[in-house]
Nucleic acid binder design. Structure first.
Length: 425
RNA sequence: GUGGGUAUAGCUCAACUGGUGAGAGCACCGGUCUGUGGAACCGGGGGCUGUGGGUUCAAGUCCCACUAUCCACCCCA
């Protein structure tokens, strides 16, 4: 038997309405904030991601990218994240020439060759929001506000927003220097991994979970205490704006982003209901990336949300299962007897033309079978079509919850159903 | 890449310390019931017990390897 690849998953027909609901809510929020959807390839030149994501990120260092040579001997990769592709799209299509800030969002599959775990897949879905061209603190705040709004809209509870500033290319090296000095002086007390991190990316030592490292880290100098004036002002403005919007946050001085391109504001939304992979949305400012990828010097900020994790959070906080979102066809058409195919088709078409979802089982001729099918599909109504109805040119409509039946002309019944359907929606 | 748990029907799980043809519930199909479903009753199909080796008179059960899956580390959405 063929099996799906490790770290991938199937969405079954009983679950797909749930995911569609989540996606619709997200794109509806995007619309409310004036974000336009963009689409870019899943497959790109591998060096776009190597540049974009950064050489010290684990995606590159630990070879978590799906990279291969295509038939033209081009080195290509399945995108491990969306920002690099979005920025490439921005630059290649000259969107900066439009003269205003670009508010973009995307949704789609991402790929990382990691070992799967609860809430972590090799193929997963992210929706990302990117705000390109605005350096203001309030641009960062807008993205956080979108997360906040979305959580509220989806009925998510028990989430915490963690916030930090990681400085800029002016103040970060100064801080890193101090941090490195401090950590080097305590090198012997650090775990093996951290001794290595010390040379690659000392910031990573900060969120090491080893107790021996934690003891040293607790005394370490903190970035947000060593911000330059401009970064300090930016960070204060973000905090002030969040406070005035009534969005609660916690400063996490050890919050560091895995991707190299971030500066200043970084944030994560975590849920206690998720297990070890508790972050379901994360983002921050990336003022250097556009230029690094060959564009003009352009400030930018954004975030990405993991759909699978978001789905788990929704289930945990609403108590609903994904199958609870299933939407059955509204009407089931039951053709009773032989040679009714034409009448059944006419009824189905008439219903569908009026926006009413309808289905049938062509293979059944007995009413009993039909009703069982309608029951299994969980349809609300059944249209009964036998020789009587066909001769008289009427339909019998059965309410499948109450068993109530009425007979009327197709036009009247469709009008009735449309009213009922609007109520149900 | 590393560590631990698990692997029996489509799903959830049984099968005493190894011992006669591997069971149940749900689901599925059919019948009781040829224009009235959800219930009940009766019947039916389905499993080389994850794969491959080994120990034994005898393996679903014990041992080894592999694979898959879950959880965790690393890291991340």
């Amino acid at each position: 038997m063929y099996q799906k690849l490790k770290g991938t998953y199937d969405i079954l027909p009983s679950e797909s309405d749930f995911f569609r609901y989540v996606m619709q809510e997200v794109s509806s929020i995007a619309g409310l904030y004036g974000y336009k959807e963009i689409q870019f390839p899943i497959l790109e030149y591998a060096n776009l991601f190597q540049r974009g994501v950064g050489d010290s990120s684990d995606i590159v260092v630990k070879k978590e990218m799906y990279v291969f040579e295509d038939r033209g001997h081009r080195l290509v990769a399945l995108r491990p994240e969306g920002t690099a592709g979005a920025v490439r799209l921005y630059i290649e299509n000259g969107l900066h020439m439009s003269g205003h800030t670009q508010r973009l969002f995307y949704i789609g599959p991402m790929f990382r060759a990691e070992n799967p775990q609860a809430g972590r897949y090799r193929q997963f879905t992210q929706f990302g929001f990117e705000l390109i061209g605005d350096p203001s603190p309030d641009a960062d705040v807008e993205l956080i506000a979108i997360n906040h709004h979305l959580a509220k809209r989806l009925g998510i509870t028990g989430v915490t927003l963690y916030l930090n500033s990681i400085g800029c290319r002016e103040c970060r090296p100064v801080y890193q220097q101090r941090l490195t000095e401090y950590l080097t002086s305590h090198k012997d007390g650090l775990c093996e991994d951290c001794q290595m991190r010390l040379t690659i990316n000392p910031l990573r030592v900060l969120d090491c979970k080893e107790e021996i490292c934690q003891r040293i880290v607790r005394q370490a100098p903190l970035q947000y205490e060593h911000l330059c004036e401009a970064c300090q002002a930016h960070f204060e403005a973000v905090k002030a704006s969040l406070t005035s919007l009534g969005i609660a946050f916690e400063i996490d001085p050890y919050l560091v982003r895995g991707l190299d391109y971030y500066n200043r504001t970084v944030f994560e939304f975590k849920s206690a209901s998720l297990g070890a992979q508790s972050t379901f949305s994360a983002g921050g400012r990336y003022d250097y990336l556009v230029k690094d990828l060959g564009g003009m010097d352009t400030p930018a900020t954004g975030f990405a949300m993991g759909m699978e994790r978001l789905a788990m959070v929704i289930e945990a906080s609403t108590g609903k299962k994904r199958t609870d979102f299933y939407r059955p066809p509204f009407v089931y058409v039951a053709g009773i007897g032989e040679s009714l195919s034409q009448a059944v088709w006419q009824a189905l078409s008439f219903l569908r033309e009026h926006g009413i979802s309808a289905t049938t089982e062509f293979r059944y001729t007995q009413l009993k079978k039909h009703l069982k099918s309608a029951d299994k599909l969980r349809s609300s109504y059944a249209v009964l079509l036998g020789e009587d109805e066909v001769q008289k040119g009427i339909w019998t409509l059965r309410n499948l919850q109450t068993g109530e039946q009425i007979q009327d002309s197709p036009a009247e019944i469709v009008a009735f159903l449309r009213a009922k359907k609007e109520k149900a929606d």
